[in-house]
């Protein structure tokens, strides 16, 4: 069984009196160690799907089993604890805390562990070294370029050593060259560190870094390319 297993998942929203059926009876299985690119038109439900996999949202119907845990019906508190151990999030706009240095941003997820202060710092520095920013630990996000900020965000996502990375358009705000560097980094994390990655992207070239690509349209996975 895959590390991510979605069965008959639906997610509907009600906007006032209008019902929006974003995902309908969706099945998805992802094996551990996979690197999946998820593409599809704007509004097709890619972010909604990521939120379900990342334990940020609950489906209207169906079963969401991730990293050996059934997420449907878990309390907000249980989900938070589960996220801190199993999922690393990477966003289009980095979502770093502007007041904290790179090192402290990376250290944030470790505040939820039992690690002591010194160990937390050391782990944060290791994560920063992996993404190639060992020399920028003291800089605040405002003092870093977009690509560097995204590297800090990646370091933050991997610092607690989760098995799964969930990326929502991680290169959407970057130029071609910087985007390729970030994609190479994700590929490295997938191949060398065994992270299972699911990445939403609008960029067909970005998708070539993944092992496979899925297309989402009108609430279902319509096509799978090898």
């Amino acid at each position: 069984m895959g590390i991510i297993q979605l069965n008959q998942v639906s997610r509907h929203f009600t906007k006032g009196r209008q019902k929006v059926e974003v995902l309908n009876d969706l099945d998805l299985e992802i094996e551990e160690g996979d690197f999946l690119a998820l593409m599809g038109p704007s509004g097709s439900g890619k972010t909604t799907l990521l939120n379900l996999i990342g334990g940020l949202d609950q489906p209207t119907a169906g079963s969401v089993e991730v990293a050996g845990r059934q997420l449907v019906g878990l309390s907000s508190r249980k989900l938070a604890q589960w996220r801190s151990r199993n999922i690393g999030f990477i966003f289009q706009f980095y979502n770093l805390l502007p007041i904290l240095s790179a090192r402290r941003n990376v250290e944030l997820p470790l505040l939820l562990t039992r690690l002591g202060g010194r160990q937390r710092r050391r782990n944060a520095d290791v994560a920063l070294a992996i993404v190639g920013l060992g020399d920028r630990a003291g800089h605040k996000p405002g003092e870093l370029s977009g690509g560097q900020q995204q590297r800090v965000a990646i370091a933050r996502a991997i610092v607690a050593d989760p098995r799964i990375l969930v990326c929502d358009e991680p290169t959407g705000d970057l130029d071609r060259e910087t985007a390729d560097e970030i994609l190479d980094l994700l590929e490295l994390l997938n191949r060398e560190h065994g992270k299972t990655i699911i990445m939403v992207t609008h960029d067909p070239k970005a998708a070539t870094h993944a092992r496979r690509t899925l297309y989402l349209d009108k609430g279902s996975l319509v096509r799978e390319a090898a």
Partner: peptide, 15 residues
């Protein structure tokens, strides 16, 4: 608000 949402994403509980 966005930053608090990020903290929650990282696994900080509501409390």
């Amino acid at each position: 608000v966005p930053e608090l949402a990020v903290l929650k994403t990282l696994g900080f509980t509501d409390r």
